[in-house]
Design a protein around this nucleic acid. Structure first.
Lengths: 110, 110
DNA sequence: TCGGTATTTCCATATATTTGGAACTACTGA
DNA sequence: TCAGTAGTTCCAAATATATGGAAATACCGA
């Protein structure tokens, strides 16, 4: 009997759209902001980043960073995994490749 | 001595950004609207369309269509060629391929 | 339990976008 | 020259987006 959810379970509380629901116009809209496009490009190397790490890299307040990261997540571009109070944000590279082949390569310049 | 510009010259009055100036965030923003994404998908077959043809296909007023077509043109996605009072709108497929290889394929699903 | 830290949410504000009718412009053909 | 047509521009209204400080939340370690 599980009395307390483990880290993996808690990560499930962060909502992500299923791959099949990804909509190209929504994705394009999410990418149509310089801050968000830059976040996606940073994440394209496959390495997850913490929210604070991204905000400081981009020199923006964490509340602004959180807003953009939420849009990216809701559009299905990124995934957020909870690890304590931190969130590891990563690109949904495989899902994107499955649904929109070549998209990530376009963003990174191959 | 040229007294009157021909059709090709008049087409040059419609401003288009040079290929080298195309910006990915701007292009993504332009594509992040369902109406504009649909216009681009229609044009992806390479056949030029008249503005009115696109507006009626999409069932929108011509003023709304003109607005979206202007954004697409200013983002560098389309080219407009004047032919009398009409405008032939086409996708800048080659320019886009040169600057952002694979982008158009992503939009059309290969 | 408590203090510190990471992140999100709330909120107000500023700015940008989208829409479509009406007026206007530009061109053609008679 | 004039009427008709294609398209653009003007304009106002509605809506959406972006920003960032402040408050709230969630979790950890002591």
């Amino acid at each position: 009997m599980v009395l307390m959810p483990d880290l993996a379970d808690r990560a499930e509380k962060i909502p992500h759209p299923p791959t099949s629901a990804l909509d190209l116009a929504t994705i394009m809209r999410a990418l149509g902001d310089p801050v968000r496009l830059e976040i996606v490009r940073l994440l394209a190397d496959g390495r997850p980043r913490l929210c604070g790490e991204l905000s400081s890299t981009l020199a923006i307040p964490t509340s602004t960073g959180s807003y953009h990261l939420r849009l990216l997540r809701e559009a299905g571009l990124t995934r957020s995994r909870a690890h304590g109070t931190q969130r590891y944000v990563s690109l949904r590279g495989d899902d994107l490749e499955e649904r929109f082949p070549g998209l990530v390569a376009v963003l990174t310049g191959s």
